[in-house]
Write a protein that binds this DNA or RNA. Sequence first.
DNA 1: GCGATCAGTT
DNA 2: CACAACTGATCGC
Length: 700
Amino acid sequence: MSSFEGQMAEYPTISIDRFDRENLKARAYFLSHCHKDHMKGLRAPSLKRRLECSMKVFLYCSPVTKELLLTSSKYRFWEKRVRAIEIDTPTQIALVDEASGEKEEIVVTLLPAGHCPGSVMFLFQGSNGTVLYTGDFRLAKGEVSRMELLHSGGRVKDIQSVYLDTTFCDQRFYQIPSREECLRGILELVRSWITRSPNHMVWLNCKAAYGYEYLFTNLSEELGVQVHVDKMDMFRNMPDILHHLTTDRNTQIHACRHPKAEEYFQWNKLPCGITSKNKTVLHTISIKPSTMWFGERTRKTKVIVRTGESSYRACFSFHSSYSEIKDFLSYICPVNAYPNVIPVGLTMDKVMDVLEGNLKPLCRSSQSAEPKYKPLGKLKRTRTKHLDSEEEDDLFDDPLPIPLRHKVPYQLTLHPEVFLMKELPQDQPKLRQNPGSYKADNMQAASLANFIDCEESNSDSDEEEPETSPLLQGGLGPVTLAQQNADADTPQWEVFFKRKDDITVTDECLENLPSSIETGGSQSPKLFSDSPKLFSDSDGESTHISSQNSSQSTHITDQGSQGWDSQCDTVLLSSQEKSGVESTSLNKDACGPKSKENISASQMGQNVLCPQDTYCDSKSRDEVNGVSHTGEPGTVSGKKSPPEDKTSLTSTHADSQSSSDFEIPSTPEAELPKPEHLKYLYGKLATGESIVVEKRKCSL
DNA sequence: GCGATCAGTT
DNA sequence: CACAACTGATCGC
């Protein structure tokens, strides 16, 4: 749950994801996605009144978010005041104080966040430096490195502060199975059940929130069965989603809801009310998406857990795991990092401690503040590949920041930036190291991990975070910047084509901004540069919105099957740990209350599936990753690139940057489990019948 | 009556 | 386990 107050230190005149209290005075509003905890005050009378008086105040969000927002009648009054900004399209916005006429320019870029349809991160560039507000996000390892607009001149942009989704910023949540693994697990469970007969139904017990759509679309696509939902009008202009949903109850997969749904389920009734089909009773299982996490060194990747005779929990997460957050932050390498979320049970201080103790060593402020640290060279921020979970153990358990390998180089030259408001020129290309050197470490760490009994070792008790250096804390204090209007007027802006207050700008434009990091100019040749694009008009005619833009449309089939990972111990399903392999009869009563839930562990056979079927999510989410790296940084195309990476920066690192949670090189020719075998196993799982436990160790 | 807040539930 | 939302009770405008 977001606890972000709405304002960033660097740009206090804008408000993001909060619309109450101080935010009522904002000059512009930003909404990262359509979840209620990010919309506080958005429909309050006080803000509505403000809107009526301040005609220049607008709400900026992604096209999908705009669509979802305006579908709700409660927010319809925003209609004329919402401006959708295309993903990956730097856009200039004038922040005008209507009382004084004071004006400040800021450039915002929306980056896909992978949290729910339409979810974005906001990258702001202006006179107070570049800051990134992540909103809520789930990005696999390495995905951040493929976001072209976070880069300039081949290197990651110089980011002053990151306002970070810290939902799982805790050792306990070190690892969460990848989206693809989870999808695959759910898919096979659903498949095994609904193929038994037309009367076998699946109820996906999802919350009333955006974010499950990619699950629905993937199931529908793979199984050819639409998902029953209560409402789908919000997707009317998103055919990629719409086509996989239905309001016709006559389907085998249901994601409909009802306040008494759990009770219904006990009585073999789906939330939409149906209990039988053609006078034949239905056989229904429920699958409840839930976040499952694993410790740092845990090799297990269970994605489905049986919780009752007919009930399952399936791993599903909207948020990045701790290791994914680390990967993200270490790549961004900001001067400051602030938490947007204070997880329940933790305090702001505790989260800051975690950030400082574990993440800040990756950031420049702490590195530069760490006198003992001796950089090995004067390389600029370099990024090659992402460290493996296991491999990172030593890195993050060390009390002192001892950057290794690629994490070493950046600070010397960047050190001064800590004290500067404005970004420095970044005129050296980001250097990339040979990813080959990591392999050995990976293997070593991985095999080592096999000998360390540290399952769930990250539960709070066993890992006290390193003490935080006071120096580090200094770098973290809220940077309260004096109102700077000195640079507010930058005539350079005027040379660009402009409509109203907002225009789409190119990085080239940014480079002409005195306060921009590009001031020094990119040394990369510009292959092309779109003419500044007109701001897409907010009123009106809704065109089809591709779910590719929805910032969350992972599709299993997009991955092909190249990613079968050799990760061991993919435990598809298990209940309580023991329970042995016992036979469980699953003959369900035709009617009457059934103890569908919470049967004892011994009643449930522990069904373990351990093929080499951990799905490797390399190349996931191509709408995110599709950003072409051929477009020269420094140039903004503002266009979606084809899914395939073309040449250049990433091509040589394609493997190393694939987002496998384990960074184990995928083996394309690895043997896939045979469909019959899988079907047999899942069938057994679904019915609770006993199966022979087959634990296979996979060779790396 | 509406909205904000909190506690409890799913 | 958490998340995000919903429900119901309470309080204030």
